[in-house]
Nucleic acid binder design. Structure first.
Lengths: 249, 249
DNA sequence: ATTTAATGTGTCAAAACTACACAATAAAGA
DNA sequence: TCTTTATTGTGTAGTTTTGACACATTAAAT
């Protein structure tokens, strides 16, 4: 960014991405710390005039995580008139990160398309900060730092969307490594739903969907009985998602 | 519209509304016929710079239906680079509906926030066309006319969102009149889901949710046995929706 | 060898769902 | 007025799914 040919960008439009990862039994999101500020922000960016909004989101994702081919879902446009303040732009300007011309750009009224992304945590070895940020880190959902603007609501809405999509999108497939154990899958579901589930009933149900395949290997190295490793059967998974896992109607 | 002080409007941003109604056992949507064209369009509008995008949608709804207080849900931003062609603007311009200045406005690249609205059909006695359209009519979902731009996909996506929300939003309450019969409620569900349901099992399940109240009256005038009239118990309904009707997790 | 804590598996009762059939009735037609 | 017709109200039996449990197994740590 910085010195953007303003004519190339769609005015007053941005994308923000809630990038979910799953690690050590917890859901985490990737956040940026703004230069010279305490507050953190969702990774985001602007949209070129000739670019799909989805493409802009893919671009942002690749810039932060180094990954292409990420599961990405747009869930809502955030369009409150008062949602974007100019405070952070002023700070960036004062500290020399923004020149006059770019400052004016940042002081427009913005609407932002909210995306959530599901990534395999281990594949994001070195998340990269953008030009305006000094750090890029994973934060667990339960202990988030202060977020700028309305990014808290964007994040809450992303989680709500993720819950709503749980039976219709390849959530497990996208967040877990290729091989995983049943307890790991359960922890993922518990983290997303925010409540604990019965171990035995969970397994029965999951296996009942017919989308899992036991590899025959076990995960060694844990302090206790070694759990079986599973993989998703992708065709069956996709198939089952069409009508929704365990959907009632 | 026409002669809009361009400075007041958010550039390249519009809203489009899929307004659902339920009548004679069929789901219908309210469409506008563009002046001088065969194609029809979803009711839509632009967004003032000082206005929430949601407010713009409410404004559009009121202008077409005369109703405030409509159930309204934003489900997605449509942001493909090539989604808005300038063809219809040219036609409008040629026929004298658009002057040079407004034509330029219409030739921008637009992204559009998709909303769906649920209205009680009988309350929309006289839908009103807007400045650019020659008619405003209800069309049944099964037999839609040709739609301009990407409005077909907007509509399809709205229906998909409605299905996804069926157990989480007050769909029945918003689409049906205050009093309704069990067969009517079932027809509504069948229309939304696009499949038929067993009469007896449907009733058992609905009553099981504890959100319906039998008024004690029957609907007279039908050619056959008079069905009971029901109302929703709104508090119980709202309550039940929070965790989702019949949600499995 | 023993301990520890997690994993794998099974069972029983309750609830929900599926697939049905038959009685009641409001209006229309004979 | 009586019969016909199509729709609504209601119930039940068999099956499946769910919820709430307990006990045996095992990999590492002591």
């Amino acid at each position: 960014m910085a010195k953007l040919p303003l004519a190339d960008w769609h005015p007053g439009l941005s994308v923000d991405c809630v990038i979910f990862g799953f690690h050590n039994g917890a859901l985490k999101v990737l956040l940026l710390q703004m230069q010279g500020m305490d507050k953190w922000a969702l990774p985001g960016g602007f949209v070129r005039k000739a670019e799909d909004v989805d493409e802009a989101a893919v671009r942002v994702l690749e810039e932060r995580t180094g990954l292409k081919e990420i599961f990405l879902e747009q869930y809502r446009l955030f369009g409150q008139a008062g949602r974007s303040t100019t405070e952070h732009a002023r700070v960036l300007h004062q500290n020399g990160w923004l020149d006059e011309e770019d400052l004016a750009w940042f002081q427009q009224r913005f609407v932002s398309a909210g995306y959530y992304a599901l990534v395999e945590y281990s594949k994001v070895s070195a998340p990269r900060a953008d030009y305006f940020s000094s750090a890029c880190e994973w934060w667990p959902l339960e202990r988030l730092p202060d977020l700028m603007l309305d990014h808290s609501s964007l994040l809450d809405a992303a989680l709500a969307a993720l819950r709503l999509h749980l039976n219709h999108k390849p959530v497990g497939l996208s967040l877990l490594p290729e091989q995983f154990t049943m307890p790991e899958l359960q922890q993922l579901y518990e983290a997303i739903l925010g409540k604990s589930l019965d171990r035995r009933n969970f397994q029965r149900r999951m296996l009942g969907y017919g989308i899992l395949c036991r590899t025959g290997e076990r995960r060694r190295g844990g302090a206790h009985k070694a759990p079986w490793l599973y993989e998703f059967e992708e065709e069956a998974y996709e198939q089952a998602l069409q009508s929704g896992l365990g959907s009632t109607w």
